[in-house]
């Protein structure tokens, strides 16, 4: 059986980091606000500040390794999308602006997403969603998706390894030279494995009564601490400041 070391590394980040003091509700607030703001904010400077904030959070969460692993790949596919856009958009200045925004948003969203997945267990998430009175039809797919992320990270790494072992270099310029081969060589196995893994996870969850319509109870409850209030307050101030700054740069305020 292949080694689970990468997967455990991804999860272990929370064990020894200050982020373990934050509740899942706080982490959800961070995730949602960063994603929404990455669309609201339009100036490159403010997008950069937003990126720095997720980077700092990632540093404190001690999940930079997992962070870079995913973000590198997300940026790679964002860059490919920009390259495809270049075929359609002929105006260089507009293309450059669009490309910067696409790259920055992909970076910010994937950073925030991987941070959440790397520092939150599915059980904690279920507890938080239950506290927020989310419907079961929403809780099930979200929980499986969060559990799915580390599994798919590992699969992507294994598929990239198998390509290297076939003698196919996995790099940005290699992709530009043979896009068809790379899309097929990476996406075909990834899609097949994704279907198989998500199917296994969902079946395993069903086999442990996850589909029960009863109001779920918990062995433990998520706790909200003073650290949560401090983090949420600081984050709120930062986000408001960012919106104002973005408005000033764009001449809205």
């Amino acid at each position: 059986m292949s080694s689970p070391r990468g997967l455990s590394g991804l999860f272990r980040s929370r064990e020894s980091s200050p982020v373990r003091f934050l509740s899942v509700e706080t982490k959800m607030f961070h995730l949602a606000s960063v994603i929404i703001l990455s669309f609201v904010v339009r100036s490159a400077g403010c997008l950069f500040l937003l990126f720095l904030s997720t980077f700092a959070y990632s540093f404190f969460a001690r999940s930079l390794r997992a962070h870079f692993f995913i973000v590198k790949r997300m940026i790679f596919f964002a860059a490919v999308s920009v390259a495809l856009l270049a075929v359609v958009i002929r105006e260089p200045a507009y293309l450059a602006g669009t490309a910067v925004r696409i790259l920055a948003r992909v970076f910010i969203m994937s950073s925030a997403g991987i941070l959440f997945a790397a520092t939150t267990s599915p059980t904690e998430l279920i507890r938080a969603l239950d506290t927020l009175r989310a419907p079961k039809t929403l809780i099930f797919p979200i929980t499986v998706a969060v559990r799915f992320i580390p599994a798919i990270v590992r699969e992507t790494g294994e598929i990239a390894d198998s390509l290297k072992l076939k003698g196919i270099s996995v790099g940005f310029f290699d992709f530009l030279r043979h896009p068809g081969i790379y899309y097929r060589a990476i996406f075909m196995p990834l899609v097949i494995r994704s279907i198989s893994i998500s199917d296994e996870l969902a079946a395993a969850a069903e086999a442990r009564c996850f589909g029960s319509p009863l109001k779920r109870t918990f062995l433990r409850r998520n706790k909200v601490s003073a650290g949560d209030f401090i983090f949420v307050s600081a984050m709120t101030l930062f986000l408001i400041g960012l919106i104002i700054l973005d408005g000033k740069i764009r001449g809205v305020f």
Binding site: S121, P122, T123, T143, R208, C209, F210, R216, T217, F218
Partner: peptide, 15 residues
């Protein structure tokens, strides 16, 4: 589905 042994075992009864 979870990160800690006892949480994992509790998953079914919680459901």
């Amino acid at each position: 589905f979870t990160l800690v042994v006892e949480d994992e075992v509790a998953f079914g009864p919680e459901n």
